[in-house]
Structure formats: C-alpha cells, structure tokens
C-alpha cells in the first residue's frame, strides 16, 4: 500500500453466510459460525460489511437468511444457485468483481457436504492468503490485519496477514448478537444470477442420516493368561462415582490429583 494514502477508505468486508441447520431439530437457522463471522465483521471499526450468500432461495432458507439481516443489515446479496450446485465458480467470480479487502466465512457449512473446503478453494482461486480459526480481528492498518487465532483451552495466537485475505472463524469468536425481527423483516435480498455448475460427484455419493459411531472397545493385549483372565473378569466400570469418606485432606487431594493427571489437565 502506498504511504501517501493517509485517509483510509472504509474497509470493505464481505461475509459469506450460509443456511445453517439446528443440530437437534434440523430446522434452518443462521449457521452458528457464519453468524459469529458477521458479528466479527460488525465489530470492526470503519468497515463496510456486505453479506453474501450463494444458494437456493425458498421458504426455509429465506427465514434463515433473514436471521442475518436481523443483525442490523438492510440487504443481503444473494447469488441464486440451484440446490446441490457447486457454488465456487459463482462466488469466486463475484468476489473477483467486488474485490473486498477481507472475506470472512465460517469453517464448515451445517448442510450439504460440509467439507469446509470452500474457503481454501476460494483462497487458492483468488490467490489470497487464508487464516483459519479466528477468535478476533485486533486491528487493520495499512493493508495488514492483526488477528487472534483460537487455540485449544482458550489460548490465542497472534498473526499478521496482508490483505486481501480470507479468514475463517472459530467457535471462540464473539457470540453473535441477537437477530431482531424488525430489521430481519425489512431487509431485502439483492438477487443476482451467477454461473451455475453442477456438482456431479456429490450427486453420485450415497448420503444418509448419520448413524451412531460404535464406541471403541478397550482391547486388552495381555501377555499372560492370567492378565487376560483378569481383564475378562474385571468389574465393568461406571455406575456411580467413587466417594471418599473419612480420608485425610492429603489422601483426598492425592485422589483428585491422580484424576487430574489422568485427564491431563495439569500443566
């Protein structure tokens, strides 16, 4: 970026939003991570935020997309695509055209394949850097964004990335604000038709509701017959926890410490 550009124009941010799915009821809703992405974008100062969705528009998706409008937007750009289409070419084209500085997406879609590949494909196609698992955007200065990436246990890593870039948000990103009914009802969809390309592979796959994964059994690799017998005759675990009464504080602490070590939460 040239140094003479002193007055920063508003940061153009595009948030890719998708139709989510409630894990229990399967009802359409705003996708959790996408909503967090929108919240992240809203928290940026001087940002011009635009919502972009590629997909089919029907009754249930309409309600879900209005959920994003309810976060305080007047319009949402909608790239109409038939169900099961590959939205990548259409998205890449429109992002290329509008060339935002920052594109925010969730990590994985809550419907369809949900492979989480889209941001990577877009980044590769546009030749932009990609940072995954964001918790926050700390600042954007001179075309460089300082980001906080979420690590396990609430830890954070600070990263710098040159814009334009694509970032995905983690569940640790700020909780999305409530979607208000009024703005959601008033918001409009700015519909454009993009190029449509079919996803043939997806159509060829067998898709069914997820079944419960079998619990892994504890396999005892015993060297001697006696160990094998012991393992087979061992009392099944579970059924109430262990209660230590009449122990000294030290013994109690010892037992707790053992458990903490087993669970590997002590550092």
């Amino acid at each position: 970026m040239q140094p003479e550009v002193t007055t920063m124009p508003a940061l153009e941010v595009t948030v890719l939003v998708s139709v989510g799915r409630h894990p229990l009821t399967g009802r359409a809703r705003r996708a959790d991570q996408d909503a967090r992405g929108v919240e992240l974008a809203r928290s940026l100062t001087d940002a011009e935020v635009r919502l972009l969705h590629a997909g089919e528009r029907d009754v249930s998706s309409d309600a879900a997309l209005r959920g994003y409008l309810g976060m305080g937007f007047t319009e949402l750009s909608l790239l109409e695509q038939p169900e099961g289409a590959d939205v990548l070419p259409a998205l890449a084209e429109i992002l290329d055209e509008t060339s935002p500085q920052l594109v925010i997406t969730g990590e994985r879609a809550e419907r369809g394949e949900g492979s989480g590949l889209l941001p990577y494909l877009l980044a590769e196609r546009l030749g932009w850097p990609l940072v995954s698992g964001l918790a926050a955007v700390e600042s954007v200065e001179d075309g460089v964004a300082t980001l906080l990436q979420a690590l396990p246990r609430g830890q954070r890593r600070r990263l710098k990335v040159r814009l334009p870039a694509i970032v995905t948000v983690d569940n640790a990103a700020p909780t999305p604000r409530q979607s208000a009914y009024g703005p959601a009802r008033r918001g409009t969809f700015e519909t454009t038709a993009g190029p449509v390309s079919d996803d043939e592979e997806w159509a060829a796959w067998q898709v069914q509701p997820a079944r419960q994964r079998p619990k892994r059994l504890k396999i005892v690799k015993a060297a001697s017959a006696r160990d094998r017998f012991k393992a087979a005759a061992a009392k099944a675990e579970g059924g109430g926890g262990q209660v230590l009464t009449d122990v000294t504080p030290e013994q109690g602490a010892e037992a707790i410490l053992t458990l903490l070590r087993e669970e590997d939460v002590l550092r």
């Binding site: 809703r29 604000r177 409530q178 703005p183």
Partner: peptide, 17 residues
C-alpha cells in the same frame, strides 16, 4: 428492545433462539 434492537439481555436471546 427485542424486535427492533435485538437487545434482550442475559440469556434472553438464547432462550428465544
């Protein structure tokens, strides 16, 4: 506050969702 501002406090927003 709820319908226009989306400002139900506490766990309100979660309950409504």
């Amino acid at each position: 506050l709820t319908l226009e501002d989306g400002a139900t406090p506490g766990k309100g927003a979660e309950v409504i969702d």
